[in-house]
Amino acid sequence: MPLKGIPHLISPELLYALASMGHGDEIVLADSNFPSESIARANGARLILCDGIPIPKLLRQILKLFPLDQYVAEPVALMDRVDDDKKKGLDVPIWNEYKEIVGNNVQFEMVERFKFYERAKKCFAVVRMYLPNIIQHNLTYYFLRKFTEICHSDKKSYLPSYIITKWDFSNKHSVSNFAFDYLNRIYTEAIFNINGLNPKLFQKSNKLKLMNELRCTLYFLRRYILTCRFAEENGCQQSLQTLPSYIYEHPYIYSLEDLVKTKLGELHKVLEPIVMKLRDHVLRCSLCFAKGFICEICNNEKSIIFPFNLQITSTCPGCQSCFHTQCYENGKLNCPKCQRTKTRKLVRKNFS
């Protein structure tokens, strides 16, 4: 159930992390070039994926909920340029945008690259925003150009804006030759984060909602399949890897081709047999089945549950533990594992 007043770009996992942070805790907003996974693993920091969302856009939303530390002279830190870039006079325009968002009166700390890495290892969470290069282009700039008649040859194309805002495939629209070529070039590029651009679209289209459920199921299944030697032997890993990796790693990111094929039902026909095959493997495989969960709320040891059973289970955004949805909701969203972790931290703090 979406909460009122929470910016739509703030995922449940990110909201949980922000709410859990206290005095002295730091959070890193990182692009795809930053070694997010290795930094997060160093000291067990949370790795939160917000792929497809530009850092400035997410930063604006975070600051609506998250106050900067007023008792620190420089509450925001940036990774400084290396010496060679400084000698070349390399400009970093995005820094000015950050300062505009945070406030020009806020002091920024410039941290040397490797010192920044070490500091990041001690942070509370790392938020990674994987943004393919193509998405950094202005996808609408060609509509602002004035084209003469020779720039048109009655070419028509689906417009991403119509699809993402209204799920409108009723007509292909006349576009310039330039726009037509550009839309063709990006047709297969996975650049549209539907959850970030228009999360209500999943409610508007039943086909898209079912597709997202399939992809979320694949997202959870991959953790079992890619770590199971039996899945490699029986071809399940190969079946999964026939798909583009973003299909099962980033369930909310779509290409224009994916959206069209979802509308036509073609993508569903491709994914459903793979999902059924992988699910069947996990339930039959002794190694995978041993990784199932017992709901810690009802403690029914006879009921082994898995996070890919989306209809009956819920996953804690903090620790990724799995529960019966009914138990989780009746428990008012209090995760037993997170409660134990919190209690242990308090005990350590009291004894330290």
Rank of each mutant, 00 (worst) to 15 (best):
C295S: 08
W167Y: 15
I304G: 03
K115A: 11
L267H: 02
F192G: 03
C216Y: 10
N133A: 08
L278T: 08
T140V: 01
Y252N: 13
K277I: 01
S205L: 02
R223S: 12
N33F: 14
N177T: 05
D51Q: 01
H173N: 10
P307C: 02
I253A: 00
Q339H: 13
V126E: 08
L271Y: 05
L15D: 01
Y71C: 07
P317C: 06
K172T: 12
H281T: 06
I247D: 03
H268R: 05
M110I: 11
M79R: 09
A231Q: 06
G318P: 00
N105C: 04
R229A: 09
C295L: 09
N300T: 11
I305F: 09
N330H: 14
M276V: 09
N198G: 02
I297L: 15
L14F: 08
I150E: 15
L15M: 05
R222D: 03
S239I: 00
T315F: 05
L90K: 15
E149R: 13
A120V: 07
N212R: 14
E26A: 10
C288L: 03
R223E: 15
L15K: 10
V106P: 03
K122M: 11
E266T: 09
M129Y: 04
G331V: 07
I247Q: 10
Y328E: 02
K337M: 12
Y158R: 01
C316E: 08
Y246A: 01
V260W: 07
P244L: 04
R145T: 06
I191F: 11
E233K: 14
V106E: 08
C316N: 04
F147I: 00
N104R: 15
G318C: 10
G318T: 04
E13G: 00
H137V: 04
C228K: 07
K277V: 01
C151E: 15
S32H: 13
D84V: 14
D31R: 12
L68G: 07
P160V: 06
C322G: 02
S11T: 15
A77H: 06
N334C: 11
